[in-house]
Design a protein around this nucleic acid. Structure first.
Lengths: 109, 109
DNA sequence: CATTGACATAACCATATCGTTATATAACAG
DNA sequence: CTGTTATATAACGATATGGTTATGTCAATG
């Protein structure tokens, strides 16, 4: 799915993850988000564009500013996708692991 | 962290996610993994390289073949990262949101 | 209405990514 | 050894990504 592409790609950048971490503490304007970073404001602006396209944030005009908020949908999608694989690192993994190792010679086409 | 970069970037590609889905059903050789796709074998080979670098799979020689398995570490890392944000789409989101707006906590990146 | 402040967009450059085809390597079969 | 099979690596081109500086837009303000 294209949406998952966009979401995981958005999460792959440390600047964007830091922006999300900041927004987890509450809304912020673009300027506030840009301040901690050594990169230019247009660069931040494009990161926000990517995050918005991935449904990870939402932006809305607030007078002269633009207020950014976390948006659950993108995060939820990524999390749901990963949940399918949760059994591979859960406590029951070892049992499953050994089970699969025994069947290694069997038909797996 | 750099590891999360690699893991999320690896998950951003639909071919690689399909490979993981296939491996969730059991080990497979490179050839078996390549078969369902319309792309060349070298392309698959590089996708596997990316997945391995992201700790999402493990490859080991098996005579003439190379057997690929899911590896939990990468998946676990990604899932742990997302877990921090789980509250933002849980039912208690509104209360936590207001709470966080006053008291802010740990950094998460 | 002219200016300033906050943000977005455009144009550009360097590097990364994903595909290709051609070739190398490693193990097995004869 | 020779050939075949399974996989990796190399070299290349197209497109994507992430940064920059310059400029445009819109709201607030004197």
């Amino acid at each position: 799915m294209k949406q998952l592409d966009a979401t995981f790609a958005a999460l792959a950048d440390p600047v964007r993850r830091a922006i999300l971490a900041r927004l987890a503490q509450g809304d912020a304007t673009v300027g506030e988000l840009a301040k901690p970073f050594a990169i230019s404001q247009p660069a931040i602006s494009r990161h926000l564009r990517v995050l918005e396209a991935a449904s990870l944030i939402r932006r809305e005009r607030d007078g002269q500013h633009r207020r950014c908020r976390l948006e659950a949908r993108g995060l939820e999608r990524a999390s749901e996708w990963l949940d399918f694989y949760r059994r591979f690192w859960s406590d029951s993994f070892d049992r499953l692991d050994k089970h699969l190792k025994r069947k290694t010679g069997a038909s797996h086409d």
